[in-house]
Design a protein around this nucleic acid. Structure first.
Ligand SMILES: [Mn+2]
Ligand SMILES: [Mn+2]
Ligand SMILES: [Mn+2]
Ligand SMILES: [Mn+2]
Lengths: 223, 223
DNA sequence: AATAAGATTTAGACTGATCTAAAAAAAAAT
DNA sequence: ATTTTTTTTTAGATCAGTCTAAATCTTATT
């Protein structure tokens, strides 16, 4: 368990996020695209990560995380999300401004610092985008979630997370009044394109494309 | 004013601190020793920093900071000291544990982050070691200071800073009850070795070597 | 099954940061 | 003014991380 470089940590995190989508292998190109680099650079890094036994790698056939790599990724994500909470809760950043900052802060790797920060923030379970924060053993608390685009007309839920943390998307949500914790009712779903009319907090009507609703996670109201 | 690497920032800061001691040029070896590297590495880095016009460098004749380098160094120091305040004030770290953490955090360079952090901390003017925090224009507030080893017997002052931030020194101060803000009276000074008997806060007697007192800064009581 | 298309890896180069050992320059000592 | 010592720079390596271009492997299409 030696110290990793920022680049190695970024790659591990990228692989983790891609695996989260479902597949049990991720490709070089997918990683390159997510991390904004070139396939050749990824190949190179994969060799190093495999050498350190953080990933399982068979040339030309994609990678997955070893147990050690998985655990490491969760630690990095924990730091990332705790800093995101700090930036929003304490420093009053907007949720669309914290990405690049947390992307740097996450690499300061001190177990004591992380524990103190966690404590200081009141042991938050979710980050500002609604994503769960792993505990120090890598355990994730999860809420039962369903993607908004799959909620049927008439159903009511609460927005718990977003799948896309780009500034453009988050700013748009701010503008139309959608936020984590908001109550949402699906008033109507257009069959043609899957767009929906929503009622936010029982007062504001919003019309969103499927592009948007597919990036919003909802917890259905038990009722 | 392009973005600097962490290594470049560390070198600039080192040069700044060495110049602070008085001389108007600092040597390659002094830098190497402070930064725990080798003279050859320093030579190499000096070339790069000179190229970027952050230092004035004539081979074999030492370096000084340009205006731009000086300003940059103060920005780095500002970040370092603000994070130190954060670690002590908010995360309850002891003043002997913050060095390496602040050494990493200082490289996260976002003007907005620094401004928000400063605001959040209540615009502190001094860090936990008593060192002044430059404002965003690089201005330093300073208190009139005198080194404790030069305070004469009978004089009374307040401890305002330490010249040495090593864990060993700070832990020692903790142990004997010396802290920033403490009232100190010099009861006696031994002519032979310059050691002193002190009275801390009017109650605790402490005997310190000159080695120690030369690393403590005092503000004399105007009386 | 052969070929074309696409994905991935390798080869080779570059930058930044570091080191050791050798060369060169400056400072100190004779 | 030489010689010796110390300091500093250069030469040459190495490692991490990245890239472009070329080679190679896999997969899809005829
Ligand atoms: Mn990162
Ligand atoms: Mn997040
Ligand atoms: Mn540093
Ligand atoms: Mn300090």
């Amino acid at each position: 368990m030696k110290k990793l470089t920022p680049a190695e940590e970024n790659y591990l995190k990228a692989i983790y996020h891609l695996l989260e989508e479902g597949p049990e292998k991720v490709s070089t190109n997918e990683i390159a695209s997510l991390i904004q680099s070139k396939a050749a650079s990824v190949s190179d890094m994969l060799k190093r990560l495999a050498e350190k036994e953080l990933i399982d790698y068979k040339k030309y056939h994609g990678v997955s995380l070893t147990d050690s790599g998985h655990k490491t990724a969760l630690h990095i994500i924990r730091r990332n999300r705790l800093w995101e909470v700090f930036l929003v809760e304490k420093l009053k950043f907007n949720w669309d401004e914290i990405d690049t900052l947390a992307e740097e802060l996450e690499h300061v790797n001190s177990p004591l610092l992380v524990r103190r920060l966690d404590e200081y923030l009141g042991f938050p379970k979710f980050d500002p985008h609604g994503d769960p924060i792993p505990d120090e053993f890598g355990e994730l608390s999860s809420k039962p979630r369903i993607v908004l685009s799959e909620v049927r007309s008439g159903q009511v839920g609460k927005i718990v997370a977003v799948n896309n943390s780009s500034a453009a998307f988050l700013k748009y949500l701010d503008k139309v009044g959608i936020y984590i914790g908001a109550k949402v009712e699906v008033l109507d779903t257009i069959e043609f394109d899957g767009s929906q009319e929503l009622l936010i907090d029982g007062q504001k009507k919003v019309f969103v494309s499927k592009e948007v609703s597919a990036n919003i996670q909802v917890m259905l109201h038990p009722a």
